[in-house]
Design a protein around this nucleic acid. Structure first.
Lengths: 231, 231
DNA sequence: AAAATAGTGTCTCTAAGACAATATGCG
DNA sequence: CGCATATTGTCTTAGAGACACTATTTT
C-alpha cells in the first residue's frame, strides 16, 4: 500500500450571478495546455501549502481569479476518474457560489488570460468548455435550481436593499419560469428573514415598492415544500 | 505549478442496514497505523490502476471489505484538509450505501482484522472511530434521514417481499420517530412503485398482511413535501 | 364469535396556486 | 383624478396529520 498516488486534486467553483435579467457564470480562458485557449471554470489544483482545507481552497480560487466575494458557497459534488483529464487520474470538487453584482475589476491572473461572465441558457452555456466542465456546470445549475425552489438562498444574490419584485425576478430568472407572487411573498414572510427598510427608491411615476434587507446574509431558510410552479 | 501533489485520495462508504429494529453501519477494525486497532469506515485509497472512477472505487471497497451488494449508492460529501490525517493533506469522498440484510460472510481482509455491524444511536455510534470518521458518519446519517423523509429510498433497505408494516418500521427506525401509517401509505400509493405479490406469509394468529415488491429497485420517487412528523 | 392486526374513511390543517381586488404614490 | 405598479384578500386544491372505524384471518 505504498504506491505514490499521483491523483491531481482540484476545486472548481461555479460562480453564479444575475444581471440583465439573465443567469450568468464566471469563466476564464485557459492559457496553458491542455485545453489552452478554451473557456473553463475558474478552478485549479488544491495547494497543500496554501490551503487548510477544501473550502478555503475554493475561496482562494474565487479570490485569485476574480475578486468577487460571496455570501454563499456550497459543495455540489465530486467527480473523479482516470479519463476526465488527459494527464491522468484526477479528482475535482465542484462548488457553487452566489455573488451579488459582477465586479468590474475581474483580474486576469494565475493561468487565466481572460475572464468573462457567460450567460447560462436552457442547456448550459453556449461556449464549449474544457475537460468535463460542462457536466460540472450542469450539476451546479441543477443544484442551484433545486435549492432555490425550497430555500431562501436566492435572496443572497441580490444587492441590498431590494424590492419584492427584485426578489421575484431573481427566482424567475434562476428557475426559468414564472413564480406566483403571493406564494413567494408568503414564503418570505413566514421565513422572517427580511426586514423592511424605510428608505425608498424613486423609480419613475408610480407607486414605489418597499425596500428590504436580509436580517442576516448567512442564514438560509428551508421550507418543507418545494415550489412547484404552474400545474 | 509543477509541485508533485501528494494528496491522498480515499473513498469512505457508510453502509447502512437495519436489523433487530435498529439502524446499523458497517465498521472495520484497522490493523495498520495510524489508528491501528481502531474502528473505522470500510474505505481506503482510490487505486489509479483498479478504479475507473470514484463511484467504482466506492463499489470496490464495498465488495472487498464486505461482500454485501447494494441497490443504492449515493455520494454524500467530500472532506479534505491538511489535518484530518496525521500523514498529511488528504481528501476523502464519503458515500452512503443501503443494503438489505446483513450477510453472514463478512470477509476480514484488506487491512481489516475484524468487521462488525455497529448500532447507530441518537448521537452516532458508541465506539470511537479513526480519523474524522465520526463526522463522516454524522453527515451520512443526516443525509439518509433527510432523504428518507422526502423520497422512497428506505424501501430499498427491505428484503422482498415485504409488508406495509415492514415499510413503516424501516421509516420509523431510520427517522427515529413514529410516522403516520396513513400518510406513508398514501405516499407509496401515489409513487406507484410497489406491486402486490399474491403470496402470503403465515405469521401467527391474525390477519396476514399483503406482501409487496418494488417494481424497480433502482427507481427512487421524490415527493414535493417532507414528512414532518407529529406537530 | 373473539382476538388481533391489516387496511380504509374522513376530518382537519397547512401551505401552495390562481387570480381578483385594493392601496398608494406621482404626475 | 387617473395611471401604473404594489400589496393584500380569498377561493381552491394537494397532500400531510390525527385518529377512528371497518375488514380479514385464525383459533
Amino acid at each position: 500500500m505504498n504506491n505514490a498516488h499521483q491523483i491531481q486534486t482540484s476545486v472548481d467553483p461555479v460562480i453564479f450571478t444575475v444581471f440583465d435579467m439573465k443567469l450568468h457564470i464566471l469563466l476564464v480562458k485557459r492559457n496553458i495546455e491542455p485545453y489552452k485557449d478554451c473557456w473553463a471554470l475558474p478552478g485549479g489544483l488544491v495547494d497543500e501549502k496554501l490551503d487548510q482545507d477544501l473550502h478555503s481552497a475554493a475561496l482562494r480560487k474565487l479570490k485569485e481569479k476574480t475578486n468577487v466575494t460571496t455570501h454563499y458557497l456550497e459543495q455540489v459534488e465530486t467527480l473523479g476518474s482516470a479519463s476526465r483529464d488527459p494527464r491522468g487520474w484526477s479528482v475535482t470538487v465542484v462548488y457553487f457560489a452566489l455573488v451579488t453584482v459582477p465586479e468590474e475589476n475581474l483580474s486576469a491572473a494565475h493561468g487565466a488570460s481572460e475572464v468573462r461572465w457567460e450567460e447560462v441558457g436552457k442547456n448550459g452555456v453556449a461556449v464549449p468548455l474544457a475537460f468535463d466542465h460542462e457536466k460540472l456546470v450542469k450539476a451546479a445549475v441543477e443544484r442551484l435550481r433545486a435549492k432555490v425552489s425550497y430555500t431562501t438562498v436566492a435572496a443572497g444574490l441580490l444587492a441590498e436593499p431590494f424590492t419584492f419584485l427584485d426578489l421575484q425576478n431573481i427566482h424567475e430568472i434562476i428557475l426559468n419560469r414564472k413564480v406566483e407572487k403571493k406564494s413567494l411573498m408568503r414564503r418570505y414572510e413566514s421565513s422572517e428573514l427580511l426586514t423592511e427598510v424605510n428608505e425608498t427608491r424613486k423609480e419613475g411615476r408610480m407607486r414605489p415598492a418597499k425596500l428590504y434587507r436580509l436580517k442576516d446574509r448567512e442564514t438560509v431558510h428551508y421550507f418543507v415544500r418545494t415550489m412547484e410552479g404552474p400545474r
